[in-house]
Simulated assay, not measured.
Amino acid sequence: MPQGKLSVLVYAPASVPMYRDFPEEVFRQRQAELGVRIDLVRRYDEVRARIAEPDVYFGARLDAEDFRQAKHLRWVHVPLAGIDRVLTPDLAASDCLLTNSRGCMAAAVAEHALGAILHFARGFDLAVAGQRARRWENVRELRMPMELADLSVGLVGFGEIGRELASRCKALGMKVFAMRRRKGANTAPDLVDRMWGPGHLEDLIDASIFVVLAAPALPDTEKLIGRRELMRMGPQRFLINVARGPLVDEEAVYRALREKWIGGAALDVFEKEPLPAESPLWALPNLLLTPHIAGQTPHFWERVVALFFRNLERFGRGEPLEKLVDKGQGY
């Protein structure tokens, strides 16, 4: 570790359900082992009161005015993949390092998306509707159930979630296509049959039965899927969003499902969360709606904490950090 005791401020809000099983004891143990000072706080007003002191901040929220008071801060770690509540213009312009926990939930999110693919491919949506109506549904007359080897999946985004989902889909015999932000050769020919760079969303849609959104929320991905894309998909294709709510135009998705422009959709994320009770999305029978649970896994904190302490040791030795965020790109 650097000369002097490294100071770390950890924000684990007690009011947020995911922090109720936060491994506080691990931080106490590692503090002694590494010879650092770790202060753990449960309310954001405590962050405001202490942010001027630490070298390192662990938390999913850091307001712009508080970052400006953080005179000693050299590294911020976000215990989630999303960094939108931390990456302010001042932080982006500073020398402060920013890391996130992308990949810690990738397997869970990929398997959630795979479950959604199975839900529609095997006609579970139709069978469940029949069950609710106490009707022995003739599913094949409504939509013939599909075998996985006949499916094609198009991934919008090929980060860690996209790679995890591609490996699972490929293992089950599906064709896999992907579109990523960078141009260039297919970087995963063992997992992806064809990979496009930006500007090829229509090609991806045309090639795929299931279009899966796994890209970050950025200005150029806002409402990436709107009326035009949904009408292009048609009733034999399905949309899955396990990325961020703003990637889709919810009003257009509602109309596409109600008027059956597309076969169905699975949404785990929304423009406003929790989704208001008055939202018309709740009533759509061809929508699989889940309350932002794709990333939930019993291994979440185990992986996040292991990543953070690996990086804390690297930081103390002056080595490059894992999961470093490109602050200019925003991911």
Rank of each mutant, 00 (worst) to 15 (best):
T221P: 06
G4W: 14
E33T: 02
R132T: 12
L97Q: 03
A129L: 15
V242H: 09
F177P: 04
R303H: 07
F177M: 03
E53N: 01
A106H: 06
L288V: 10
L230A: 02
L247P: 08
V86D: 07
V212S: 05
H200K: 15
P189V: 06
D249N: 13
H299R: 10
G330P: 05
V36A: 08
Y331V: 14
P274C: 02
R228Y: 04
K175G: 14
D150E: 15
A171P: 12
L80Y: 10
D220T: 11
L148V: 07
P145N: 10
L114P: 02
E111R: 10
E46N: 07
H72F: 04
I293K: 05
A32T: 09
F309Y: 02
L224P: 10
Y11S: 05
T290E: 07
M1F: 04
I293Y: 00
I225E: 01
Q329K: 09
D190A: 14
L151A: 13
D150P: 11
W136I: 11
R50D: 12
L224D: 10
W136N: 13
G4K: 15
V211P: 05
G197Y: 14
E147A: 11
D95Q: 11
D21E: 12
F315W: 13
L267N: 00
P235F: 04
I38L: 01
F124A: 08
L91I: 09
R68D: 10
W301F: 04
M174L: 14
P189H: 04
A306M: 01
T88E: 03
N311V: 11
A266D: 05
G159M: 03
G154Q: 07
F158V: 04
L289T: 12
R42G: 06
G184S: 01
G245H: 07
T297C: 02
P246R: 03
R182Y: 00
A12S: 10
M1Y: 13
A92I: 04
L312V: 08
A127M: 14
K327D: 13
L191I: 06
G123Q: 14
L275V: 10
V128A: 08
G199I: 10
D249P: 07
P246L: 03
V211T: 11
V325P: 00
A294N: 09
Y57D: 04
G82W: 01
V156Y: 05
A294W: 04
T221Q: 08
F124D: 05
F300L: 13
L98Y: 07
P54M: 02
L62V: 13
D326H: 12
G123D: 09
A121Y: 08
G234R: 14
E273F: 06
V36K: 03
D66A: 10
L321Y: 02
H119P: 00
L98F: 03
A52L: 08
P145R: 06
R310M: 13
L224E: 14
A178M: 11
R85V: 08
G123E: 13
D206V: 09
I38Q: 02
R85H: 13
E25T: 14
A277N: 01
A265D: 09
M1A: 14
A149T: 12
L142W: 07
K71T: 13
E147T: 09
A185I: 04
L307Q: 05
C104E: 01
D125Q: 10
L239G: 11
E251C: 09
H77M: 14
M174K: 06
I240N: 07
E33P: 00
A215V: 13
L201R: 04
P54R: 08
A215H: 02
Q69G: 01
A49H: 07
A214P: 00
